[in-house]
Computed example of a mutant assay.
Amino acid sequence: MGIKFASGGFLTTVQDMGRTGYQESGMSVSGVMDQRSAAIANILVGNDENEAVLEVTLMGPMMEFTEDNIIAVTGGNLVPKVNGKDLPMYQAVLVHKGDSMNFAGMTSGSRAYIAVAGGLDIPVQMGSKSTNLKLKVGGYQGRKIGGGDEIGFAAPKTTLPNMRKRKVTPEDFSQTEKTIRVVMGPQDDCFTEKGVETFLSSTYAFTNESDRMGCRLEGEVIEHKNGGDIITDGIAFGAIQVPSHGQPIIMMADHQTTGGYTKIAGVISVDLPLVAQSRPGYKVHFQKVTVEEAQKLYIEQVEKLKALKEELAKVPEPCGELDAVIQVAVGCESKRYWNPIGTYRVVIDGTEYMVELEEETERFR
C-alpha cells in the first residue's frame, strides 16, 4: 500500500505543479504553494519535479507507512518525526513498513512537502494530480486528507543511486520580516505617484485572511487615481491586487482565473516561496526589479535544480576490477570487497544492483 492517516492535520493535500490549460474555463491551476521546496523534495527521492507531493500546512498529519519507501521532507520546518525521533529535513530517508510519522509543530515557515520515491498512487485528472478544493477535483477525492484515508505508493524504492549524497542545506524560512521582489504592472498606471511610492516604501503585515487562494496584507493605504475597479482581466500566480480600500492582496496557487481589481505588481517566481512560507503577523517590504532581472533569477534557479538532479543521478563508473565494483561470486567461497564508503554496483549472476556502503570494510576472500 503506502500511507495510512490517523489524522490529516490542519490542511494536508495532494499537489503537483498544477493543472494548466483550463483557466479559460474558469478552473484554477492550483498546485503547490512553494514550488521550489516541492521540486527539491522530488529530486531528492529521484522523481520528476512535477510528481505529486503531500503539502502540509501549519499543523501536520499523523500517519503510518504500510510499505517500505524512500521519502524526503522539505519546506517549512514543522519538526517531522518518525517513531518519535527527529527526521532530517532536505534529505532522502528510507522508512519502513510500520513506521509512524507526525509533526511536532512549527519552528519556521508554514508549509512542508513530503515526496515519496516513485510517486503517490493518485489518478491524473486533466493532466494533473493536484487538489482543487473549491471544485473538488483531483488529489485524494478532491478534498483534504483526513483520518482513516489511505494513499498507495505508485512505484516504491528502497535504494537510489548516491543515497548518502541525497541531502541539501535546508532553506531558512525563519525570518519574520522579508523583502519580496516584484515586477511592476500591469495596472501600476492606475495609481498615483504617491501610491506607487507608498507601495514600495511601506511595511505590510500578513493578516489572518491568508490561504491557498490569496494573502491579504495590511499597512499604509495605496492611493489610486480613480478607484480600484477595472474591466475584468486575467490573474497570474503572485499578482498583487489593490482594491479601492488600498490594501494589497497577493494572489496564490488557488487564485481565481480573472479579476476586476487593479494589479500594481507581481511577485517574481523565485520569491513566491517566501510568500507561501509566511504566516499571519509576518511583515514584508516590496522591492522593484525589472523583467530581465526576474528572468535571470528564474533561469539561475532552474539551472541549480537541474545540476542537483544530474549530480544525484550519476552512477559511479568502474575504474578497475576492485576499485569501484563489489564483486560477489555466488555459489562459491570467493568474495571480494573494496574498502571505501560510497555507492557501488554489485554484480550477482550477471545482474547489477546499487549498494550503499556505509562503513569501511576489509577485503577478504
Rank of each mutant, 00 (worst) to 15 (best):
E223Q: 14
F173E: 08
A117S: 14
T12E: 07
L120F: 13
E51N: 06
A313F: 02
K167Y: 08
T13Q: 12
L87Q: 04
L200Y: 10
Q327K: 13
S174P: 07
V355D: 06
L135H: 11
T107P: 09
P61I: 09
D16H: 01
V93N: 12
N102P: 03
N83C: 07
D86P: 00
F199R: 08
G152R: 00
K296M: 11
R36L: 15
V124T: 13
D86V: 11
G142K: 11
F153L: 04
G60M: 08
Q241A: 09
S108E: 15
P318H: 00
F65H: 03
A239R: 02
F364I: 09
R143F: 11
K97P: 07
G84F: 05
I326A: 06
T20R: 14
K4P: 02
E49G: 06
S201C: 06
Q175T: 05
M354K: 02
Y140I: 12
V346N: 01
K178E: 09
G105P: 12
H96F: 09
L44F: 10
S25I: 03
E220I: 02
M213T: 11
L133E: 08
R345I: 10
E310W: 00
L308M: 15
P123I: 01
G109D: 08
P80H: 09
I145W: 08
D99S: 05
Y344Q: 05
G8F: 12
K283M: 14
E150C: 10
K136R: 15
N102D: 15
R212D: 14
S201P: 00
E220M: 14
Q141L: 14
L272V: 12
P273R: 03
M213S: 03
R36C: 06
I264K: 11
